[in-house]
Simulated assay, not measured.
Amino acid sequence: MDEVRSLLLIAALSNAVKHKSVPAAGAVMGAILGSHPELRSKAGEIKAILGAVLDEVSSLSVEEREERLKSIAPDQYASLFEKKEKKKATLPDLPGAEGGVVMRFAPNPSGPLHLGHARAAFLNDEYIRRYGGKYILRIEDTDPKRVDPEAYDMVRE
């Protein structure tokens, strides 16, 4: 159980350092059981140890918590302060499109436009901005049973 106590201590210190507060029992327990599913069968025993570990970490100052975590789990400490680099989503290139593209937006006038229409229109617009070219609005009204006459105006708006 010394290994479990060490895991609990690291999780409690991480939680306390991350939130600059006393460690939260539920978060610490969740972190342990989530990262070590093999310990789930011992949850009762772990809870018994958890109280003492939380008391120990709570008794430390903010600076002492940071120093302790840095000394026993430097990688864990560093991961709390790493800035996560956000990947900027980009559309794939269109080979041979350097001279311009022709994109179309072809909604069916059966009712109001929805999020799926907006997505298609936005993506096509991005390619027009990147490569230049034409953007064609084609109303897909080949099925007269589905056409709502008021939808023509909604699409134009």
Rank of each mutant, 00 (worst) to 15 (best):
A24S: 14
G26E: 13
A27L: 08
A27D: 06
V28C: 08
G30M: 08
G30V: 09
H36S: 02
H36N: 07
E38G: 04
E38V: 00
S41H: 01
S41R: 04
A43V: 12
A43P: 04
K47N: 15
K47M: 15
A48T: 14
G51K: 11
G51H: 13
A52P: 00
A52E: 09
A52V: 02
V53G: 05
V53M: 05
E56R: 12
V57G: 00
S58A: 14
S58V: 09
S59W: 05
S61Q: 04
V62N: 04
E63P: 00
E64L: 10
R65Y: 04
E67Q: 15
S71L: 13
A73I: 11
D75W: 06
D75E: 15
L80N: 02
F81R: 04
E82C: 02
E82N: 03
E82I: 07
K83V: 12
K87G: 00
A89Q: 09
A89M: 11
T90D: 03
T90G: 03
L91Q: 05
P92H: 05
P92G: 02
P92C: 03
L94S: 06
G96F: 12
G96E: 14
G99K: 15
G100V: 10
V102N: 14
V102E: 15
M103P: 03
R104F: 03
R104L: 06
F105H: 07
F105Q: 03
F105Y: 10
F105D: 01
F105R: 09
A106H: 01
P107C: 07
S110I: 06
G111K: 04
P112A: 11
L113W: 02
H114Q: 08
G116I: 01
